[in-house]
Design a protein around this nucleic acid. Structure first.
Lengths: 230, 230
DNA sequence: CGCCGTGTTGAGTAGACTCAACCCCAGTGG
DNA sequence: CCACTGGGGTTGAGTCTACTCAACACGGCG
């Protein structure tokens, strides 16, 4: 039984990120242990260990999903590793849009890490990187005004959703409501800030969810400015 | 040459957390590779890998230290592991008060992790735990009002600074200014919120930096309430 | 004693929040 | 074919509160 079409697609997806540095046998073990899960929007991810293949997965925190905080975003190729953590039932992984993930039993990942040292190294590097990104996000939340956070977010999304292209046109991978919660503001405020950005000509919208960056320079300089800077 | 007084102290410090699960030889290797560094307040930690022994280390992010964001706090027994990360020169580790750390060369930690599998496991667990705490902090910043964040912070600090005692009386391990930046508010706002808490009788101050929790229940219920909850 | 770092208080403003109404569009069913 | 419906998004008006800037209080130290 040869590799299925899906497996081939996964291999090519993982080929250009850190995963590709791993020995072939290691990747095979991971693929063999995992199952591909299709998620509709707002579906909760079963399990707490996975690799994102398509779409965006959000880490929600709060009793009620409808008004929970969005604390982190996982894009394709990202590793989700939330086992071994105190689970008081308030953390959930939810698909922001229809998504596809490679779900892994925590035990399978641990076994593979034990067997393949490079995999263990890669996992540690990724988790460290995620912690770093979270610190950066905290810095934005505590030190930047809403419009600056928005500009920063748009640049980030444009880079990760279109890593090969010119990064000027891209799809917003989630609802306004979820964007607003991730950015720590109200949906109405987000809407007004987007409107303001449109007015300056820095961005434009082809459709409500398809954005074009017209003036990356302006956006970057907005993203860089701190709250109390002139 | 037997262990110095300091080394004995370190061993007892690490004895009651996850570190104690490690084999003795592993701890010895780490201790041998590290150097104990004394830091005065506002000193920048040289290197990017360390274990906190005394005091609190803050992760700052921003060009200018004076108005950088405080993104994370490291308490005694915590592992600081910031190597391998994109270092654009805007991340710094600073002592919030006079502190003592066991500074390790990144290469030494890597070597020890390679040699001792349990250490590698422990490091991964700790980094995952830190990422989890950061997500929790993000949730607070995006979803809670300043007074709720303050209540939550005080409970947290009381637990980590006095893990053995009754956790009702403790030292605030940093300046108001740094607390405010960590909590995403202005020093003036923080001052007013503390004043408000004092007025309710939930807390009291023996000295400006020595706090007593008078009514933990009230504080906990404050910390739990979300922004838009009644 | 005066200085400096730190923290608090006061007054005024700007900006995010709240609540409500409205728009737009895709899906649905008569 | 078209009214109906509901989710998602935007707009508007008013309120509230955190921010800003300035002055002041306090304690340690030269």
């Amino acid at each position: 039984m040869g590799p299925t079409v899906e497996e081939t697609a996964i291999r090519s997806l993982l080929a250009d990120s850190g995963w590709s540095q791993l020995p072939q046998a290691c990747l095979e073990d991971v693929l063999a242990a995992g199952t591909i899960v299709q998620l509709a929007q707002d579906d909760v991810l079963p399990g707490r260990v996975a690799i994102v293949l398509q779409g965006v997965i959000g880490a929600f925190r709060g009793d009620d999903l409808a008004q929970a905080a969005v604390t982190a975003l996982y894009f394709p190729r990202d590793l989700i590793e939330l086992d071994d953590l105190p689970d008081d039932g308030v953390d959930m992984l939810v698909a922001m849009r229809p998504a596809q993930v490679l779900s892994l039993p925590a035990s399978a990942l641990h076994a593979a890490m034990h067997k393949h040292a490079p995999l263990a190294q890669e996992v540690l590097t990724r988790v460290k990187r995620q912690a770093h990104d979270l610190r950066e996000h905290v810095a934005e939340l505590t030190g930047k005004a809403p419009e600056h956070r928005l500009a920063s977010f748009l640049i980030w999304v444009s880079e990760v959703t279109d890593p090969t292209g010119d990064q000027l046109s891209f799809e917003l991978p989630m609802r306004r409501y979820d964007m607003a919660r991730y950015l720590g503001m109200q949906p109405e405020t987000l809407s007004r800030k987007i409107k303001a950005l449109l007015a300056t000509g820095a961005i434009s919208l082809r459709t409500p969810s398809n954005m074009v960056i017209e003036d990356r320079e302006a956006l970057v300089s907005l993203a860089r400015s701190a709250r109390r800077a002139a």
